[in-house]
Amino acid sequence: MSTTTKPALTGPAPAKAAPARTWRGLRGSRTFNFWLFVSPFLAGLIIFIYVPIGWSVYLSFFDARFTVTPSNFIGFDNYTYMLTDPKFVHSLGTFTVFAAFIVPTTWAVSLGLALLVNRLRFMRAFFRSVFFLPTACSYVAASLIWKMSLFSGVRFGLMNTVLGWFGIDDIAWLASPDPPWYWLVIVSARLWLQSGFYMILFLAALQNIPAELYEAAAIDGARPGWQTFRHITLPQLRATSTAVVLLLLVAAYQAFDEFYNLLDKTTWGRPPLVELYYTALGTEQDYGAGSAGAVILTALIVVVTLFQGRIMGFGRGEESK
């Protein structure tokens, strides 16, 4: 029986199934699926990330003023110029100050918000959304609101109105670097904008902590509150904390919008990207020097990220918890 059916089945099958099999074969092929999924993103990555980076590296070896297709090769001159340019070196200092302010404060505020929202018994969705909403706001819009209404230097600016109740004179928050009030404006704007997002990350992590751990701790006599937080919650959040700190540092490196929009024609308060923007796209249009600065900055970011990954154990997976 079986011997008669076999040829009957194999006979007509190839003629019909041949086209279907190549399609199915393609679909089944791991290589094809890999490229199908990866190529759109890879194309985007190459066109919008790697080509510009490559072009930057190329430009950084040329005298490229007012052009992005230069012909005058000058070797490492742009690098020497940028590394000895006090403005560029200073901008790295500005970034460090900024990161020192913004990373710990955002970490603490978003964790605090997450803890508060997590303990809510009612209207949790409402508060979660309220704190998350600023994330959807543009940095430029927020900067303008901060500059023109909250921290405007005139008597009807919100902060000056509040200070006025206590008989304190108007402060021009952004006019002068001495005292450096501009840091308050910049840090508070970014804090408002990004805390909600990191709160969501912490909230997710908090909800992932098994309830048994708290029960066990309570049985062992740990007091609720600080002791439980210190010895249960915080260690359980380690992986998330590491990720948050890393993301915050990267975001701080990329800081541009609020500095650019809040500080007009200053020689201070310029993080690297703003400084490079003025070098490359400002009045000098020096794309060579600007690109050299960008390459230096990229190298720095890579080194710092690798170093941080090493000491904080990011990306080592579960055991890092």
Binding site: S149, S152, G153, V154, G157, D169, A172, L174, A175, S176
Partner: peptide
């Protein structure tokens, strides 16, 4: 003048 407090700064 800048430091005197008589100059308008941070105007909208």
């Amino acid at each position: 003048l800048f430091a005197s407090g008589h100059l308008l700064l941070g105007a909208p």
